[in-house]
Amino acid sequence: MAASNGRKIAIVTGSALGLGYELTRQLIERGWFVAGIDFNAERQDALAEEFPSDVYRGYVGDVSDEAFVRQSVAEIKALGHIDLLINNAGQPSFKVPTGYEAADIDKCLKGLKGMILWSVETLKADDETDLKIANVMSTAATRGNANESVYCATKWGEKGYTQSLKAAYKGTSVKVVGVYPGGIDTAFYRDSHDYVSEEKQHTFMNPAELAEVILCNLVNDANLTVSDILIERNYV
């Protein structure tokens, strides 16, 4: 097992692609050790080639699988104190309201379930001390969007969980941050070209720039916590 060599340790779910990859890459550039969580085994192999073992370790599995979460957190805890958890993993489903089926609901709920499971296990592993949890959601958690009814519902659930964690740990060394980004130019919308065209996607935010803005607010030496990060794209 790779050692963190005294580096601060972060867990990033959904680390293989898009925003998760950029958060991972930029944390490593800042001197962190990152435990990356993703179901994409091929991409995890690629990241193992890209990053040395003393700065990155990949875990392949379903973020909503409780046994996988428990085993992974136990292994990461063995490396040292976990300083940061970024719950970034999630899957979308964009359809007209009457187009949704049970499988679509289950798909969207994986992100919410994973957010809860990773938060619970990480809090227990660190004895609820000196931990920052950042829950990456969407601006869909702040409003209702046409043809995103189930996606919005799960993001509103994630927001409710985030706000409840803030209330539970107010005044402690556990800090909880809600992150609400708008549209990002990644493969996130690849199966919904009838809803978000590829041309429109390319007007969305650059994931590297977005990750930089998030981390500037999330990881710094200031004696403060930015509790909510709402980032809207520039409309053209």
Rank of each mutant, 00 (worst) to 15 (best):
E121A: 15
E232Y: 14
S15A: 15
S173N: 05
C152M: 05
V96R: 06
T186Q: 13
C108P: 05
V196E: 06
T154G: 07
I133F: 06
T24M: 14
G14A: 05
V213E: 10
L123P: 04
A103M: 09
G99C: 10
S138Y: 02
G182L: 01
A3S: 14
C108N: 13
A103V: 11
W156M: 01
A187G: 12
G58L: 12
Q163T: 08
L210G: 09
K124E: 14
Y100V: 02
L84S: 12
A208P: 01
G144Q: 00
R43I: 03
E158N: 04
G144M: 02
I116F: 15
F33M: 08
T172F: 14
K110P: 09
N40H: 12
T154Y: 07
E101M: 02
A140D: 02
D65L: 15
G58E: 08
D62A: 15
F68K: 06
I37M: 13
I229E: 01
Y169Q: 07
V34S: 09
V150H: 06
G114K: 03
A41I: 06
T24S: 15
L17S: 11
S149C: 13
L47Y: 03
E49W: 01
K155R: 04
I214E: 00
A46E: 10
A48V: 00
K77P: 03
F188A: 07
D130Q: 13
Y151T: 02
G178P: 00
T172M: 13
M137Q: 09
F94A: 05
Q163E: 15
F33K: 04
N145T: 03
L224W: 07
K170A: 14
Q163V: 07
Q26H: 14
I76M: 11
R190K: 12
P92E: 11
D191R: 14
G157R: 01
D127F: 13
V196P: 03
P97Q: 01
M115F: 14
G178D: 00
P97S: 08
G171V: 10
E158M: 14
E158L: 05
F204D: 04
V176H: 00
I37Y: 13
T142P: 00
Y235I: 09
E121F: 13
P181F: 10
Q91F: 15
I214T: 01
V196D: 05
L230E: 06
Y151E: 04
I76D: 05
N223F: 10
H193M: 12
R70F: 03
S4I: 07
V174Y: 10
D127P: 07
S72Q: 10
G99S: 06
I76E: 02
S93L: 04
E50A: 07
E199H: 12
K77A: 15
D106K: 13
F39P: 03
L210C: 11
H81W: 07
N147M: 11
T98A: 10
S173R: 03
Q71N: 14
E42D: 11
S119V: 10
V174C: 12
R43A: 13
I82G: 05
R43H: 13
G90D: 03
R233H: 12
I76Y: 08
